[in-house]
Design a protein around this nucleic acid. Structure first.
Lengths: 134, 134
DNA sequence: TATACTGTATTAGTGCAGTAATACAGTACG
DNA sequence: CGTACTGTATTACTGCACTAATACAGTATA
């Protein structure tokens, strides 16, 4: 599992890690039933206190993304497809709602929002293709 | 000037106020050259320490939205149209970039993003119409 | 130049989110 | 049942963002 922390982002460590794991699960990069790296091991890799990682895992367990087995470890929970896509939809809508609110208050027309999104997607497409070649 | 503070939003006061004034300026609801309410007066209205408002004004001055005249007060700066629309565009793009990043990482297709935005705009439309009737 | 406004530099208080240390609890397995 | 793993409850430290109190500085105007 490839994780990285940006100590200068202002975002707390536990949220950065949680967000990355959450996305790996929802995107299917982290398979159902798969065991996660142990708290102490991940803490060691990231050079962070184990409690910080424990907090991350607890957070994701509450969200229903992880299942814990006492004394054994944490595993990616079985998630029903509809629930999964609903969660993904909610995450998207959360960020989009902010954007639309901004646009409305600044009197920016809907068409411009769509255009901007097209540009951004295009930019991502380019970035992805560059990544594939490396 | 109609401003409100939500003490339960978690967002600090000075940012809430700054954001609201910023949008009023960029949307043109607060005209060029117009004088702003004095620090002490606004602080009184919002029942907040004057320094908090001073901080807000300083912030907006640094952004180039306000001009200060020592001992007199603060005024909405003259902003060139192109700069204004550029600023607005940047604000929008900032929030949209996050949304697109989320979508890409979750493997959500671009079409779904556009649909979600249409829905959100529609919802806002309804809310606005309701407001007009009140 | 006195007064009644403007804004602000400085300093101090406060709360809380984030992180860490420590010690405790469950499980597997020889 | 001991050892070597799992995760975690409790407690405490720490830094910093936010807010506030106070006293100071500029300007207009009579």
């Amino acid at each position: 599992m490839l994780l990285q922390i940006d100590h200068h982002s202002g975002q707390p460590i536990y949220r950065q890690v949680a967000e990355q794991i959450r996305r790996q699960i929802l995107a299917g990069h982290l398979g159902e039933g798969e065991q996660l790296v142990s708290v102490r091991e991940l803490a060691g890799q990231l050079k962070v206190n184990p409690m910080t990682i424990s907090k991350v895992y607890s957070l994701l367990e509450i969200e229903g993304l992880l299942e814990r087995r006492r004394g054994v470890g944490l595993f990616v929970a079985r998630i029903r497809r509809d629930q999964k896509s609903r969660t993904k939809g909610q995450m998207l809508e959360q960020v989009l709602a902010k954007a639309v609110a901004t646009a409305v208050q600044l009197d920016i027309p809907e068409s411009e929002v769509h255009e901007s999104i097209e540009r951004l997607f295009e930019r991502y497409g380019v970035a992805m293709r560059r990544q594939e070649h490396e």
